[in-house]
């Protein structure tokens, strides 16, 4: 309710839906998306998936980072954290409750987004092919890849939630939390781009490895790893230089999330509440 009654929440949702609608219209005009031709059914789905997945990574990431930052930061900015804690709510309990609420929010966003994508795709297919046959007769592997893409989106959304909640807990304000968490991924993606350039001009150094330990690039590369290199990679986003295996990349992501969670929980448990 705290977020539902805030205008920015609905502005972000409306903008997100409009952008998705616009993307579907542009995809309808894309020659690579041609459901009328039997031979292009699968490639059309992959082309569609590439775009909607990229949109989710950027758009939903932004929505989740700002919303979860507000969810946590508002308690500090309004001072309500002192009322909640002064009533005997445990600090770790509060942190976990916020994390759980934010994860539920991410799940709702994920489900809502993919339902809209499914609806848009169905309309697009009906418009181009006159029936839903191109979808119902897709090869099994495409559905498997779709599930893998969905999984990578879920991991990406979960990561955004953890980043948003933990950074806001550390920053202890809406403005600070939102600013740092929104800048988190652009900064580590930019760092990855610099490392890639250094690697290209053959400057020797440890950055070859550093690149693989960054959270953003690891998440960017996850769809490719999950689908064993099929066409659902979000290729427009920077990826690690050396490309760890799927297990190693997942381990990097988990390590980041666990470290951030521990840092935030520890800070909340130990620091005085002066809000």
């Amino acid at each position: 309710m705290k977020l539902r009654r805030q205008r920015p929440t609905w502005v972000l949702v409306v903008v997100g839906v409009l952008l998705l609608g616009l993307a579907m219209l542009l995809l309808a005009a894309d020659p690579a998306v041609a459901f009328a031709r039997h031979s292009l059914w699968a490639s059309s789905v992959y082309q569609l998936l590439l775009v909607v997945q990229l949109m989710f990574a950027a758009g939903a990431g932004l929505i989740l980072l700002t919303t979860t930052s507000r969810l946590v930061g508002m308690e500090y900015s309004f001072g309500t954290i002192r009322v909640i804690l002064a009533r005997g709510t445990g600090r770790i309990q509060l942190f976990l409750a916020k994390l759980a609420s934010a994860l539920v929010l991410a799940l709702m966003l994920l489900i809502g987004y993919w339902l809209l994508v499914a609806l848009g795709t169905a309309i697009l297919v009906l418009h181009q092919a006159g029936s839903l046959t191109p979808l119902t007769e897709l090869p099994g592997v495409v559905w498997v890849n779709l599930g893998q893409a969905l999984l990578s989106c879920a991991i990406s959304a979960g990561s955004c939630v953890v980043v948003g909640v933990t950074i806001s807990t550390l920053a202890r304000s809406v403005t600070g939390g939102m600013l740092v968490s929104v800048l988190f991924f652009p900064i580590d993606n930019a760092l990855d781009l610099i490392l890639i350039q250094l690697h290209r001009i053959a400057v020797p150094g440890p950055w070859v490895w550093v690149s693989d330990f960054l959270l953003g690039p690891s998440l960017n590369h996850l769809p490719t790893l999950l689908t064993s290199g099929r066409e659902v990679s979000a290729g427009a986003l920077p990826a690690p230089i050396l490309h760890f295996s799927l297990a190693a990349t997942l381990l990097v992501v988990v390590c980041w999330l666990v470290t951030l969670t521990l840092l935030a929980a520890l800070a909340l448990a130990r620091r005085d509440v002066l809000a």
């Binding site: 309004f78 001072g79 009322v83 002064a86 009533r87 005997g88 445990g90």
Partner: peptide, 28 residues
Amino acid sequence: RRVLPHVGPLVETPALYPHLSGRTNLRI
């Protein structure tokens, strides 16, 4: 955690959610 639920606090300026109504604040 055991004893503070029996305490009613008002510290400095009242800490409230300004975008919500008085009743909703109490409900939350």
